[in-house]
């Protein structure tokens, strides 16, 4: 799974810790999401979409599609 988390976070000038606080997860989890080493659950993906005000499919893309 690919995602644009790092780009979206940079656009808002947020640190990983700040994004983690918005999402209610740890900074390590944000780092793992950004580097593609961890795929979020559907509830967390929806939360990420809400935080950035964008649809899920504009943030995440299937690298096997």
């Amino acid at each position: 799974m690919n995602n644009r988390l790092k780009v979206l976070r940079a656009e808002r000038d947020w640190s990983q810790a700040q994004l983690a606080e918005h999402l209610g997860v740890s900074r390590q989890t944000v780092n793992a999401l950004e580097t593609g080493r961890y795929d979020p659950s559907l509830p967390l993906a929806f939360k990420i979409a809400r935080v950035f005000g964008q649809p899920i499919e504009s943030i995440f893309s299937d690298d096997q599609a």
């Binding site: 209610g24 997860v25 740890s26 390590q28 989890t29 793992a32 961890y38 979020p40 659950s41 967390l44």
Partner: peptide
């Protein structure tokens, strides 16, 4: 353990 699992985030639970 149950309370702790509720507190940690989903990656830690995984």
């Amino acid at each position: 353990g149950a309370e702790w699992m509720r507190v940690i985030d989903e990656a830690a639970r995984e």
